[in-house]
């Protein structure tokens, strides 16, 4: 197990190196002068030269990559071109709201989607199954900001149940924090719920045809115990895998959700960086998100053994 863990950790190193190389080499691959592109149309030649030097674009590629990697290994993501502050600091200031939003979304989505999928599979072909799966198709088709605006319009503007926009840290009280996260999480979670509910239903349908489920039924176990203990546990590996893979969707959705609900998180930071073409900041956010994504999926891989003891390393 320990050897496997080490092996798996080692395999993530080339993947992360590749992500780094890719994100870094974008500056060189994209046609045209990236320094001029970042500086914008009104920049003077001196401005462009300054940006070129600050990005290290005036040195050969391998040297630049090595320097960049070396600094990255020391936790230095470079300076923002626009505000001249270290990117790590900018990211550090914005991580809190994004983590709150993503955590809340995952918690609620998984708690909602798995029972939805289980019920749909249990009552496969029935009206409730059709209804739930139609909801799932709708969840896939409604873009995050459409759901966000719709929810905010109905529940915040018209009914006035929840605040429209903004973010309050948890230190200022649990309810103010929670109330401002409900609508963003609901809109961000739509796609995620649809994804998990669908995969849960599909795997459950497969598991429910297995012999041991029939045996369980034959020995007189109730539906609840069959579904939860015999079926869901055996269906858990694909479900958990999709929960992990779906995080990519969540990360992308966060950028938009934070903009709709004016949450000062990483997504907002990215959008501001787009406006100023502040590539080091975007680079930092991309690296951080990809790293987190890879790490979470690695952890999920390692959890397979807990869920299904038949999987041996």
């Amino acid at each position: 197990m320990l050897i496997y863990l080490l092996k798996r950790l080692l395999t993530t190193v080339p993947v992360m190196l590749l992500v780094g190389l890719f994100v870094f080499s974008l500056l060189f691959v994209v046609p045209g002068d990236p320094a001029a592109m970042i500086a914008g149309d009104q920049a003077s030649i001196a401005d462009i030269a300054r940006i070129r030097a600050s990005l290290g674009l005036d040195r050969p590629f391998p040297v630049q990559f090595w320097n960049w990697l070396w600094r990255l290994a020391h936790g230095d993501l470079g300076q923002s071109i626009f505000s001249d502050q270290p990117v790590t600091m900018l990211i550090g200031q914005r991580v809190g709201p994004t983590l709150s939003l993503m955590g809340m979304t995952m918690l609620v989505s998984v708690g909602l989607a798995v029972p939805m999928g289980v019920i749909a599979a249990w009552k496969a072909g029935s009206l409730i199954d059709r209804f739930l799966m139609a909801l799932a198709v709708l969840g896939f088709s409604l873009p995050v900001f459409v759901v966000g605006y719709m929810l905010a319009y109905v529940f915040a503007l018209n009914l006035d149940w929840l605040p429209v926009q903004g973010y309050v840290p948890m230190d200022d009280g649990l309810w103010p924090w929670l109330s401002r996260l409900i609508l963003p999480s609901a809109s961000l979670g739509c796609v995620y719920v649809a994804l998990i509910a669908r995969i849960t239903r599909a795997t459950m349908l497969e598991v429910l045809t297995q012999d041991y489920v029939r045996t369980a039924r034959a020995k007189g176990l109730g539906s609840a115990s069959i579904l939860m203990i015999h079926a869901l546990k055996n269906a858990s590996v694909p479900i958990v895998t999709v929960i992990g893979l779906g995080i990519a969707l969540l990360i992308g959705g966060t950028v938009v959700t934070e903009s709709v609900f004016a949450i000062p998180g990483l997504g907002r930071l990215t959008i501001d960086a787009i406006l100023h073409r502040d590539y080091p900041v975007i680079q930092g956010v991309v690296l951080l998100c990809s790293g987190t994504y890879v790490l979470i999926n690695l952890l999920i891989d390692l959890c397979y053994n807990l869920l299904d003891p038949r999987i041996r390393y």
Binding site: V19, A248, V256, R277, V285
Partner: peptide, 13 residues
């Protein structure tokens, strides 16, 4: 492992 939205944003910047 790069979320598609972020990858596209990086390319477009």
């Amino acid at each position: 492992s790069i979320p598609p939205v972020l990858l596209a944003i990086a390319l477009m910047t």
